[in-house]
Nucleic acid binder design. Structure first.
Length: 274
DNA sequence: TTAAATTCCTGTAAGC
DNA sequence: TGCTTACAGGAATTTA
């Protein structure tokens, strides 16, 4: 499922192709995928807009138009945003198509429909709670270990739950939460507030390393994730624990354990993580 | 106020 | 082989 590295890959791929393009037409095959504003208003507002920039905040794709209005795309679990030629056959579950002035199309496809589209200024979307307040970007050079430590310290829930909390740290999902906790040799069910500064520094480094490696490998295609060209990523081959329950730990050889934390499958090594 | 539980969805895989 | 059932999970919403 798309997390920070997968969204970053899509955004980086789309940026040079979308900036400067104008949306000439928009078709919604499944209008309820648009959560704001009403679908008719959404179409009226988006058509004729020129794309100024393409960015990312957490797991959100931000397509900014030249009047500071944003087209916000959240991929949920199975969302895909693809740039295709007009002759490319329409895949099933394609809910929205944006026609561009160069003849190409930006298509949103999402079998499970957990994703959503939003349109508006950043301020309006935030104040109307259509977009939540997100925590800091973990790969931002300014995101220091001390900041992570402060955020962990005030929480009385598990490390895993805090890593998944988008208001605590933006962009981390089930894959990279498990991966970074394993790298940091920390049990996912450790209460966040009991962590030492030293352990928090280790988690900070592990988190950033897990995300950086995944971005370098164009993300993990463990479920239906595909990049903007429909291609799979490469990080799924390099995952240390995610999806490997029962298989041997690469460090000690003991079978990896699987438990449920915060309603999420969580894989870790009972021998290596404390 | 914080944390946990519930809900939304459908493709996939396991089990009978 | 074909049907049924369990499972996957991001985040908004509800409950504790």
């Amino acid at each position: 499922m798309p997390e920070l590295p997968e969204v970053e890959t899509i955004v980086a791929d789309l940026r040079p192709h979308l900036v400067g393009r104008t949306i000439t037409r928009c078709e919604l095959a499944f209008p309820t995928i648009v959560r704001h504003p009403e679908p008719e208003e959404f179409i009226d507002a988006v058509v004729g807009m020129r794309i100024e920039s393409v960015g990312r905040r957490g797991k959100y794709i931000l397509i900014r138009f030249d009047n500071s209005i944003l087209l916000v795309v959240h991929l949920g679990m199975t969302g895909q945003l693809r740039l295709v030629d007009a002759v490319t056959p329409l895949a099933n579950h394609t809910h929205a198509v944006f026609f561009l002035d160069d003849g190409r199309q930006l298509r949103y496809r999402d079998p499970r429909r957990f994703g959503r589209l939003l349109l508006g200024t950043q301020e309006a979307l935030l104040s109307s709670k259509k977009m939540p307040l997100l925590g800091p970007e973990p790969i931002d050079p300014e995101f220091a270990a001390g900041e992570l430590y402060r955020r962990l310290r005030k929480r009385r829930t598990s490390l895993k739950a805090v890593l998944l909390d988008q208001g605590a740290i933006a962009g981390v999902g089930n894959i990279y939460a498990d991966e970074s906790l394993h790298r940091a040799r920390l049990r996912p069910d450790r209460i966040a507030g009991t962590l030492s500064k030293k352990s928090a520094v280790r988690l900070h480094e592990s988190l950033r390393e897990s995300l950086r490696a995944a971005i370098a490998n164009r993300g993990s295609s463990v479920d239906t994730y595909r990049d903007a060209w429909g291609e799979i990523g490469g990080q799924q081959e390099k995952l240390l624990v995610y999806g490997r329950a029962g298989e041997p730990c690469f460090t000690c050889g003991r079978p990896l354990s699987s438990i449920r934390i915060a309603g999420r499958t969580t894989v870790f090594c009972r021998r290596c993580q404390h």
